[in-house]
Design a protein around this nucleic acid. Structure first.
Lengths: 336, 336
DNA sequence: GGTGTTGTGTAGAACGTTCTCCATTGTTTA
DNA sequence: TAAACAATGGAGAACGTTCTACACAACACC
């Protein structure tokens, strides 16, 4: 009525009760009669009262969960975020995203900022930090880490089973009759452990070994250009591979271009598979065979674990989400 | 030293001064001697003190700016966000993103949540709300709206000049010798005003008229399928167009597929242009001519306007960012 | 020596909640 | 009938800042 925001005191005055009583009603706490409940609820509606989050934060909960994004361009962030918000949609938690950038320093700044704003918990997506830094954050606030293999005791982890995903691709290609299957991976630069591309490469090696085949890993980068260069090198060899498994779809697109330029038809002369199942992989003009990590499930799982931890669980949990292979037009039997 | 977080009182005790003095130093306020400055700074460093944002919020500023995202999948969000964070990188403002979803209701819930968390200002990206709702939000908090044409007095606006962008495409195609140029737009459903696709279609009509050509607008949807269906219909006509300008790249990809299936080669039989310059448009296999709206500039401008408004400007500003045409392989002279 | 003026520091009241007692009822139980 | 107990509402102290007053010194001026 007067000037700015309507506070709990305004509601209390309107309903003719104490602020403490209003607080109880708002929080659904014990010790409120039905009559009181009704009076207060009505006053709240009439005044359009909304609790001030900062004031709450000063006492305890803030009902805000932070999600730190390392690389906003990462194509399956939207899925993960949908999974998180979907899971939390009917609770009173709100999700805010923090663009952390790809630098360890900016990511640290962002997590600090989120802690300063007294969020109740944090989901870190593919954070680029040392294990020690992660552990330090996790002592200050409940944390769930997504996309880093080899979790620690201080926080929960949700990972895509990249070993399995790579295995699915190799099994598929071997099943089609391929024996010379090459893998393009990302050149390791950061010191961080357990990054997905490393694990995918390892999964590829394991699967090839299991089939009694020789592995062939080339490290360029997960870009269209990286895929292109890698494929050009592989295709120039005498015993060129009949199938190339790129560790990321974006690189697989480069492989497809290299095949085009080399005059090889896909999948007759060369089978190509990627990883991540990005949106355009399903476009009919591309139709790329790829591994889909269910972002919704990953996000929803992370949200569930985080809430559990906020509400008291202290034992650390690691959840592994199984990927699925989406077979499309870029893989087929090798020409004999 | 004791248990939890280190507060301003801890610092004051350590430095042997009052909390008010520490507060002054932290805020860089007037009335601090060099000696005091040094003492306090040292104490802060020793204790690793960080101001508690919620406590600050209770008094005034929170140094947090919110960006409400309508559709996380929108391909140029990353650019806009980079623009915003880049501009704000050396200030003490922090940016948090709120996934608002595509429903008016969820977007309203998110903006409310951001206001509850007493953010200093809001950037709304392509919000789907009525003008009245927008105006209501803008009275509660400084607001900059991105991507809605026809701004209001209560808030600032940043828009891509979609009329100009559509004009660039038409001029380019006419310059190549095309006269039968069709446009695929998005079927209007929401009641919101001034959405980009409407303005692009209008810009297309204006430009065609300026060249003395008849316009030809088909409304499907901004999806790959929408572009495909639209193109199929257009290409089935007797006097089929020699060029199709899709209002969004994703639809242009569908147009390309339709051309493929119709056995038409691009750009000889059909020129295709899109809008947004999404990442894959530049892939050599696609090489789509498209209109680039500089997301960095849009984001940076929005951030600048918001800070200005927070710091006192009350006059409303609308900033129009000029797009550029990126000519690639899908447009060329028509076959005569 | 009074009266300003300036520069520096502090006391203490907000800000809007939550939450731990405590007071007041009304109801059982001995 | 007294004593114990349960159910409900309220007082008031936090929570960690900011910021308006004000105090106190040192110094300049008349």
């Amino acid at each position: 009525m007067t000037s700015g925001r309507v506070t709990i005191a305004d509601v209390a005055r309107r309903a003719g009760v104490s602020t403490a009583a209003v607080s109880k009603v708002v929080r659904g706490a014990y010790g409120v009669s039905a009559e009181m409940q009704a009076k207060v609820t009505q006053a709240i509606d009439e005044l359009g009262y909304r609790p001030h989050a900062a004031a709450r934060a000063l006492r305890g909960r803030t009902y805000t969960l932070g999600v730190m994004l390392s690389d906003t361009r990462n194509p399956f962030f939207p899925d993960i975020i949908e999974g998180v918000t979907g899971r939390l949609g009917d609770t009173e938690y709100q999700v805010l995203l923090g663009p952390g950038g790809i630098e360890p320093k900016t990511q640290a700044r962002m997590t600090d900022a989120m802690i300063d704003r007294s969020m109740d918990g944090l989901i870190l997506i593919s954070p680029v930090m040392t294990d020690a830094e992660l552990a330090a954050i996790a002592t200050a606030i409940p944390v769930v880490v997504v996309g880093r293999h080899g979790g620690a005791a201080a926080y929960d982890s949700v990972v895509d089973d990249d070993v399995m995903g790579a295995g699915l691709v190799v099994d598929h290609l071997v099943g089609l009759g391929h024996t010379r299957i090459a893998h393009i991976t990302h050149l390791e630069r950061a010191r961080a452990q357990g990054l997905p591309h490393t694990v995918r490469a390892e999964g590829y090696r394991q699967a090839m070994r299991a089939h009694g085949l020789a592995d062939d890993v080339l490290a360029t980068s997960f870009t269209e250009e990286g895929g292109f260069e890698g494929a050009r090198e592989l295709l120039a060899r005498d015993d060129r591979p009949t199938a190339i498994f790129a560790g990321a779809d974006i690189a697989a697109l480069g492989v497809l271009r290299a095949a085009d330029e080399a005059g090889l038809s896909v999948p007759e002369d060369l089978s190509v598979a990627g990883y991540d199942n990005i949106g355009i992989a399903s476009l009919k003009r591309i139709s790329l065979t790829s591994v889909d990590q269910d972002g919704h499930v990953i996000g929803a799982t992370a949200a569930r674990l985080l809430v559990e931890r906020i509400e008291g669980r202290s034992r650390s949990v690691t959840s592994s989400v199984s990927p699925t292979l989406i077979v499309r037009g870029t893989t087929g039997p090798p020409r004999v």
